[in-house]
């Protein structure tokens, strides 16, 4: 750590090249500070989209760390690179046509059966999901459990990049959530009711009113809207 122009800085290595960057920046901002421009591998900048997967090591630590560049602050002695995309085979399927059974996940992704329960996927996940557990549930054909355990997956693909069995965990989990949502989850009664209300024209009047507002009035309404806590 050193002082540069009176503010604290840290020394990081982006793809092996050394940079002095202000302390407290996220990896993403530090890269931009160092002169890199993101064209791909960036998205929401808020930790939700999974586009900015990063791998790094810290000096003196054998562990390979994984995180999102927009969420992690730089540390002194950080060796990092971005991994914005992991090539991982995603099967083609038509959700409407899929014959759903317990075997659906293994049928489309038989490589699931190559899992050795090494737990590397779980240790890799920047969302702290129990990835190995949902892979095991997938092998057992428990689609609901896969959907629930993987609910917070943001598809960054880091698990698939590190898996020795070459499993595309995030695609398997997405398929599980799709099957669960379409075929297995209980129907949402209030949603159905609301769709009926919309179909019956219950909100047409309010909608028309909004459509016909001037830009200024619309702005004012937006600024004074009530937000649920």
């Amino acid at each position: 750590m050193s002082e540069e122009n009176g503010s604290e800085t840290v020394e990081i290595f982006i793809m092996g090249k050394k940079y002095e960057v202000p302390k407290g920046l996220t990896i993403m901002k530090a890269m931009e500070y160092s002169g890199y421009q993101y064209i791909r591998g960036v998205g929401c900048r808020g930790g939700f989209c999974g586009a900015c997967a990063t791998i790094y090591r810290l000096e003196g630590d054998y562990k390979l760390h994984t995180d999102l560049a927009c969420q992690t602050t730089v540390q002194d002695g950080m060796y990092l690179t971005q991994l914005p995309f992991t090539p991982a085979g995603r099967e083609n399927y038509d959700l409407e046509e899929l014959e759903v059974s317990n075997n659906s996940l293994l049928d489309l992704y038989p490589e699931l059966a190559r899992c050795v329960s090494c737990n590397t996927c779980t240790k890799t996940c920047p969302q702290d999901l129990e990835v190995m557990d949902f892979v095991n549930e997938a092998i057992r054909g428990n689609i609901k459990e896969v959907a629930e355990l993987s609910f917070d997956c943001i598809q960054c693909g880091l698990c698939a990049a590190r898996c020795p069995a070459e499993i595309p965990h995030h695609h398997v989990a997405q398929l599980a959530r799709r099957i669960y949502g379409k075929y297995q989850a209980p129907d949402s009664e209030h949603l159905e009711k609301r769709v009926e209300e919309i179909d019956a024209g219950q909100f047409d009047e309010e909608l028309d009113e909004l459509v016909n507002l001037s830009k200024e009035d619309l702005k004012e309404r937006y600024e004074n809207r009530e937000i649920e806590a």
Binding site: V116, S117, C118, N119, P164
Partner: peptide, 9 residues
């Protein structure tokens, strides 16, 4: 030994 990890876990 990688294939022994699952059972031992």
């Amino acid at each position: 030994l990688m294939k022994q990890v699952g059972p031992i876990r």
